[in-house]
């Protein structure tokens, strides 16, 4: 029996311990904001926060999550999350939107650790998140905007 905290609530899982966290979230917990894009940690669509740090849930066996704390797009909160989501909406970042949960999870983590990121900092944090619609320019802008509002 694997026990972990999901968006603040205690959860258990007693299925196949190899099951990636991604599918536990989506199929068992019905939290579908976290997306499947590649299954091999190349695209970042499945990004969640594991014990406060970004983690690609598609290559994270649930067995390794025992005792950990998981936060998904549905449960993310705090001033960074608010600032990021507001900034995303203000300049209409998403196109198809499928990758954006993962983008936002990475962006929030970046701002939690680096409140005033440079363009290089943004590249460093976000280069693992693919957006096939190539909304990258707006993602960069929105992160800067979010940083500005947090500062202000």
């Amino acid at each position: 029996m694997i026990t972990f905290k999901l968006n603040g609530q205690q959860r258990t899982f007693d299925g196949d311990p190899d099951t990636p966290l991604l599918w536990v979230l989506r199929d068992f917990e019905k939290l579908t904001g976290t997306k499947y894009g590649c299954g091999i940690a190349q695209c970042g669509a499945c990004t969640v926060h594991l014990d406060g740090m970004t983690r690609r849930s598609c290559i994270t066996p649930i067995a390794t999550v025992d005792g950990s704390e998981v936060v998904t797009i549905e449960g993310i909160e705090g001033k960074e999350a608010e600032a990021v989501q507001k900034a995303w909406v203000a300049i209409d970042v998403p196109q198809c939107g499928y990758c954006q949960s993962g983008q936002i999870m990475s962006a929030v983590s970046l701002l939690q650790m680096t409140p005033k990121p440079s363009d290089d900092d943004i590249d460093g944090a976000m280069a693992g998140n693919i957006c096939r619609c190539a909304t990258y320019q707006r993602i960069r802008q929105a992160i800067h905007d979010a940083a500005d509002t947090m500062e202000g």
Binding site: T47, M53, T54, R56, T64, S109, P117, G128
Partner: peptide
Amino acid sequence: VPGMMCTTCHGSENVP
């Protein structure tokens, strides 16, 4: 780096 530490993908053991 912040937002993409090694631990974003690399855990404490190899993962099939």
